[in-house]
Amino acid sequence: MNLTLKVWRQNGPADSGRMVTYQVEDVSPDMSFLEMLDVLNERLILEGDDPVAFDHDCREGICGMCGMVINGVAHGEQRATTTCQLHMRHFKDGDTVTIEPWRAAPFPVVKDLVVDRGAFDRIIQAGGFISVPAGSAPDAHSIPVKKENADDAFDAATCIGCGACVAACPNGSASLFTAAKITHLGLLPQGQPERDSRVVAMVEQMDLEGFGGCTNTGECTAVCPKGISLDVISQMNRDYLKAAN
């Protein structure tokens, strides 16, 4: 099939950027979205143009490196799917596809579709961990964990840190990401000692980074490739109210 791509090109943080239109031909339905861009880039290189920069690594939906806003939707309209796992069979011959980077002030554009998500790491630094130096841990069976809690903690822990939630949120809020980690650790007995300080510190860091506040619009969970539920935000809110008072 043949497609028209409108791609955001921006040479660096200082450049103002613009949409550039490209035609791609002979796209196979079995290609992934990134493979389609690979084809475009191979052509651009040979034509002496600058290939479109985009982040990717695992290409199997787990590293969280890839991400672009496709036709206005983070990671594209296919639900629970990362950009690398989106396949061209979901597009039709002749479609026009708009491709933009994550848009949020705390995620400045590095180049084209590549953004800097270092803010997420700093949110984790603020408290997204359990302090346990190597070698100091008790036997793993010394603390049983209710299966339900373990399962719920796992659900929250599957966040891949892609940032689609921020890109989709009309407030540019990082609540889903932050809350996923707070919930994961807060549901486990191991996470209790630091539970209160964790939520206060992480929420504060989220604000300092310049993310917006959540007004429960739910756009984040809808685009989240791992289907992280709004439950985690509710949990974060509850923990925060408890800890901050």
Binding site: G72, G172, S173, G210, E219
Partner: peptide
């Protein structure tokens, strides 16, 4: 104050018309 914070966090609009993926238009 939340609206101002949100405006600062999202200074650039998407070129493609954003479609609500969630609760529809009401929340907006």
């Amino acid at each position: 104050s939340l609206a101002r914070r949100a405006a600062k966090a999202r200074p650039v609009k998407y070129a493609a018309r954003r479609k609500s993926q969630a609760n529809g238009y009401v929340v907006h």
